[in-house]
Design a protein around this nucleic acid. Sequence first.
DNA 1: CTGAAAGCGCTAACAT
DNA 2: ATGTTAGCGCTTTCAG
Lengths: 336, 336
Amino acid sequence: MPTLADVAKVAGVGVMSVSRVVNGTRRVTPETERKVRAAIRRIGYEPNEAARILKGHRARIIGLIVPDLADPFFATYANAVQETAWKAGYMTLMAASGHRDEVERREAEIMIQRQVAGLLVTPVGFRNDHFTAARRHGIPIVSFDRPLENVDADSLLVDNRAAAIRVTEHLIEHGHRNILCLAEDEKIFTLTERVSGYSDVMRRARLPVRVCLVGSVSGSVSDQLNFALHSTPAPTAIFATRNVIGVEVLRELQEQSVQIPEKMALIAFDDFDAAALVRPGITVVRQPIAELGRTAASMLLARLSGNGQAESSRVVLSTELIIRESCGCRKQSKPA
Amino acid sequence: MPTLADVAKVAGVGVMSVSRVVNGTRRVTPETERKVRAAIRRIGYEPNEAARILKGHRARIIGLIVPDLADPFFATYANAVQETAWKAGYMTLMAASGHRDEVERREAEIMIQRQVAGLLVTPVGFRNDHFTAARRHGIPIVSFDRPLENVDADSLLVDNRAAAIRVTEHLIEHGHRNILCLAEDEKIFTLTERVSGYSDVMRRARLPVRVCLVGSVSGSVSDQLNFALHSTPAPTAIFATRNVIGVEVLRELQEQSVQIPEKMALIAFDDFDAAALVRPGITVVRQPIAELGRTAASMLLARLSGNGQAESSRVVLSTELIIRESCGCRKQSKPA
DNA sequence: CTGAAAGCGCTAACAT
DNA sequence: ATGTTAGCGCTTTCAG
């Protein structure tokens, strides 16, 4: 592989002229520039990142850490991030933490050690010292989907509370008084927010707050749903706070031939393929995922080019309620 | 950040002893090793990759290039690859080519320049010189899902022909004589294989080969499907050769209230959420995607540790036909 | 078994 | 505007 010195020799100039042309660090005679560019083209020179990094520069790489790359939500997000970063000349080092604190921690450490220029992370845990470490190394961080407590980082969140409030109110408008809220038993910021939005509305309306947890500790969706169906008074509507829960609820209701929305109304968080394909269509909260990815990446890129504010920012985007029929609405119409 | 020299100073030994302990390159006195390890722990030393790479070593990074990271197929695959690589101590640099030849080429070039240890790629095009370049640099390549012609690389493929044959025969067994095959108009290896499997079976059975192309050039699924539905004789079964085509066909048939499978049978390639949720369930060809990802990564890792064969290998995995009801089968039963 | 020195390719700092 | 030098942290080579 040809080096910068090789280019200099071929072009008949000093190494620094070449370096300056390549990086545009300073002005150079048009004549010199021409010679250098010609030489570069002729011998096919490409700068060596490793040497640059060794000199104390940052890699033109951004590190992306998410809980699960196979989750459609994060896949769409990751794709948008990668695309945006690529356009700005950055590659993306991606890692899935598998929802595990220690894995996330180790991944962050290795990325820091690799001198990534910035970190884009959806944190799973509460111990955040690995991220404070990154900040100490001067690596900017943007947290996505969940806030990063006690760390100097920008964050891009979605207004989960508002969405949950909207959902709950919509169901109440349809006349439901017994609304079941299904959530994961793990303590994930987004789910907590959604549950809290639901609870507030119910309390304010003096309706019973019925939150039901599912997961490895609390039992399967199918089991929990069955308990609820046979309780008195039985719920007449369900708010599924997460994409996979929504899909499982749907499967279970179909299995048991429970009429939607007559016997049971349903609104789920996150749009999914099947939601538009099944009859009746499932009403969902849609997050603008690709846009979120582009925004998150842009926030980080802004920091990298030094265009950021001094203090860390917190951007909150809102969601959209996609009305289909599972909430009780008629096709293409607004609720009564 | 502490350097190797710092460790040496603290431990009271030479730098090379430290290097040897860290890399296990050669035997050292237990006493020396103890001192070095203690010092490393004490000052929190982590080796600097950049310096290592500069010395001519490869980065412990593998490059992954796929057409689209948001596509559930590639997302699941990428997740499995990343996980497998991580366990072997490698990080994963991911890039989506957006199905574009030039982008893929540039991404490969940059990865080579970054000294990735190996490349895992799902090529979109036919000009493969960027990959031969990688081979010249001694970077091993595994091509996934599609072969890489004229390049010295391992490949991991799925038996698309066999799957298509199975699908077509299954529909014929159900008594269908007019079977429509819907494919993309772009020349993608996997789709070509599927179409060819279908055609062979139809020709052998002396039935009409009816391949219908959709895409940016040929028109939307909806349009093409409408043409076909009003042709004489109208098809009574459809083979959708790709996940998104399957979903769109399903949507269109529902829209037009075409009874499945009575008026129109349907088998699609790639399983999707909705396939199991809609009534009737959609019969699909399922690829073991996560397993494919793990296998592909393992093939590359084997090369990296020098355990590979001398000549390049070509592994072909087979698929599974998930029988639901859209093909005409009864629930939980085999075809007549 | 251990240490000292050279240099990988690049750029900051200085010199011209 | 351009060239020269030193050194980033590591490992290869050669001496001890």
